[in-house]
Computed example of a mutant assay.
Amino acid sequence: MSSPRFLQIHTLHSYTAALLNRDDTGLAKRLTYGGASRTRISSQCLKRHWRMEKDDPHALRHLAGYVDSFRSRELVTLRVIDPLRGHYPDEIVNALEPEFQILVYGDKADKGKKSRQTLLLGEPELTWLAQEAAALAQASSDADSAKKAAAEWRKSKNYKTMSENAALPGGLAAALFGRMVTSDPAANIDAPVHVAHAFTVHEEEAEGDYFTAVDDLKTDEDDGGADTIQETELTSGLFYGYVVIDLPGLIANCSGDKEIAARVVHNLVHLIAEVSPGAKLGSTAPYGRADLMLIEAGDRQPRSLAGAFRRAIPHDLDHAVTELDRHLARLDQTYETGEARRYLSLADTDLTAAGGLEKTSLKALAEWSAERVKDAPDA
């Protein structure tokens, strides 16, 4: 096989009596596929849990060279302007703020929070902005001079100037999952990690959960029964998940450093396998690890294996592995793309496509994936 350009990560995860990802009505997210309604976990939900994980030993923030980032409409207010208050007169600080809001969020950003796009900025960009704001405040004698100096300052500033001399200006989250800035298209960062919505391989399994809360301080004279009565939805499912990593794109976003990119992939494989995208932790304990993880390295355009589950199948891991294996074998026979593969599995049924695949542990699978980054072509 030639130098791998893509890593494709396929997973099967089981969750029971959980509400992993809700819509605006409080019900589980769904999609219809193959004529059957399935339970869904959105890609945004998955990415956020992998990005925000703090306690796992493989959390991205534990990586050497990690650069933090923050997503908000109030990045300028909270990280650039508010730290100046108490050190400089409020009238000077207030005069500076509109120009900084416009630089980051665009022409109408000084009209208030609702006029701003929710943006992701890296720690280096925010640090630079805070230093520039402090310098302007220091040099200003009153509100008028501050306003004039800030307007003149902004004329020659853009996202490029914010990012100079920083290896990961937008932070690691932007390097992985990208960034879109409508006020400055040159600040956009292409996402090298592409995440599909996960869905159940079988028809949705859901029920309403009627529950009550009892007032512990009620006396015998009070009316009996529950103090609170509510209902929520619980679902169970075996979810197919799919992630693609564009290796040259990831390496480029890591400033060409393959070592950093390899460490990122190593930890991301662990996070995808082990971090659950679950809410309602106290009442459902929605924790699970991958029942199956198949990783492919190749130089051809990626393709999902979701077609294995176009026809809803029974909620059974061995059945799902069999269907995945059959679909993979048909793709190999038809397209002969020659990906290198490794996988882990808790199923009794093994993957046998392409004459058999090497079955291994998560630790070995993550290490194998990291090595493929080092073999990848440069961007």
Rank of each mutant, 00 (worst) to 15 (best):
S3L: 15
P4G: 04
F6Q: 08
H10A: 02
L12E: 05
H13R: 05
H13Y: 01
S14F: 04
Y15R: 00
T16Y: 05
T16V: 11
A18L: 02
R22N: 02
R22G: 09
D24K: 10
G26L: 01
G26E: 13
L31G: 05
R38A: 00
S42E: 12
S43R: 02
C45Y: 07
L46R: 02
K47E: 11
R51P: 06
D55E: 13
D56H: 15
P57C: 01
H58Q: 11
H62V: 13
A64M: 13
S69L: 00
F70N: 10
F70V: 11
E74K: 11
L75Q: 01
V76C: 11
T77D: 09
T77C: 04
G86Q: 08
H87L: 13
H87S: 12
H87A: 15
V93K: 02
N94S: 15
N94R: 15
E97D: 06
E97P: 07
E99A: 15
L103N: 11
Y105N: 13
A109W: 04
A109E: 09
K113R: 13
R116D: 03
L119R: 03
L121N: 11
P124W: 14
P124K: 15
W128F: 09
L129Q: 09
L129H: 06
A130K: 00
A133Y: 06
A133S: 09
L136P: 13
Q138N: 14
A139H: 05
S145P: 04
K148V: 12
A149Q: 09
A150S: 14
A151R: 03
W153D: 13
R154W: 05
K155N: 12
N158V: 05
T161E: 06
A166K: 04
L168E: 12
L168I: 08
G171A: 06
L172E: 07
A173L: 08
F177T: 00
V181P: 00
A191N: 03
V193W: 00
V195G: 04
F199A: 10
F199C: 10
E207T: 10
F211I: 08
F211K: 01
D216M: 04
G224Y: 10
G225K: 10
G225P: 05
T232F: 14
S236Q: 06
G237N: 01
G237A: 06
V243E: 00
D246S: 08
I251R: 05
I251G: 12
I251K: 15
A252K: 04
C254Q: 14
S255G: 13
E259P: 12
A262C: 08
R263D: 12
N267P: 00
L268H: 11
V269Y: 05
V275L: 12
G278V: 15
G278M: 07
A279L: 01
T284Y: 02
A285P: 04
P286H: 03
P286C: 02
D291V: 04
D291R: 14
M293G: 03
L294F: 02
I295C: 00
D299N: 08
R300L: 02
P302C: 00
S304E: 11
G307A: 11
R311C: 14
R311N: 06
H327A: 10
R330V: 01
L331H: 08
Y335T: 07
T337E: 03
A347E: 07
T349R: 05
T352K: 03
A354P: 04
L357W: 06
K359L: 01
K359H: 09
T360S: 09
L362D: 12
A364M: 05
W368V: 14
W368T: 06
V373N: 05
V373P: 00
K374M: 06
